[in-house]
């Protein structure tokens, strides 16, 4: 079908209108920003030790028990990680087990994951003994990235 048409011109939009119209999305962006700004953030975590060695509303003995629970698996996780040849991968694998166990522990005790990690950190830092009376190693090996 060959049609020779003369179409009316589409309305030309003056440049001033284009600039003026930008106020609309700017308003929307401000509105979105305000909406996001007013979503209440999670309250800060008070990580101070207060009173009679209480931290995260847990007594020292409770925290030590949590740490001991994690530390008691140390030998088991190191044995599992020994399947890797290089030392960095062994460390990394060990930490997968630590992470998974802490997640389980946090869910079981209805604690925040971050709180259990910080208790683990406290135990390492304060050299709390594991159930066999030893300190856990708080070092890492030089970074050796995987290539796959």
């Amino acid at each position: 079908m060959a049609l020779r048409m003369i179409w009316p011109a589409p309305t030309r939009i003056p440049l001033g209108w284009q600039w003026l119209s930008l106020l609309l999305p700017l308003g929307v962006i401000v509105g979105l920003g305000l909406r996001l700004l007013f979503v209440p953030p999670p309250p800060p975590l008070d990580a101070r030790t207060i009173g009679n060695d209480t931290r995260f509303a847990l007594s020292l003995s409770d925290r030590k028990a949590i740490y001991a629970d994690i530390a008691s698996h140390d030998a088991e996780w190191r044995a599992l990680a020994s399947r890797f040849e290089d030392e960095w991968s062994r460390h990394d694998d060990y930490h997968i087990h630590v992470s998974r166990h802490i997640q389980t522990l946090a869910a079981m005790r209805k604690l925040q994951l971050q709180v259990v990690f910080l208790i683990y950190d406290e135990g390492l830092r304060r050299h709390w003994p594991d159930p066999k009376g030893r300190w856990l190693d708080a070092t890492w090996v030089p970074l050796r990235p995987r290539t796959h």
Binding site: P10, I13, Q18, L20, S21, L22, L23, L24, P25, V28
Partner: peptide, 9 residues
């Protein structure tokens, strides 16, 4: 759609 503002909205 040709006006930048409404399009961005």
């Amino acid at each position: 759609m040709r006006l930048v503002g409404p399009r961005w909205v």
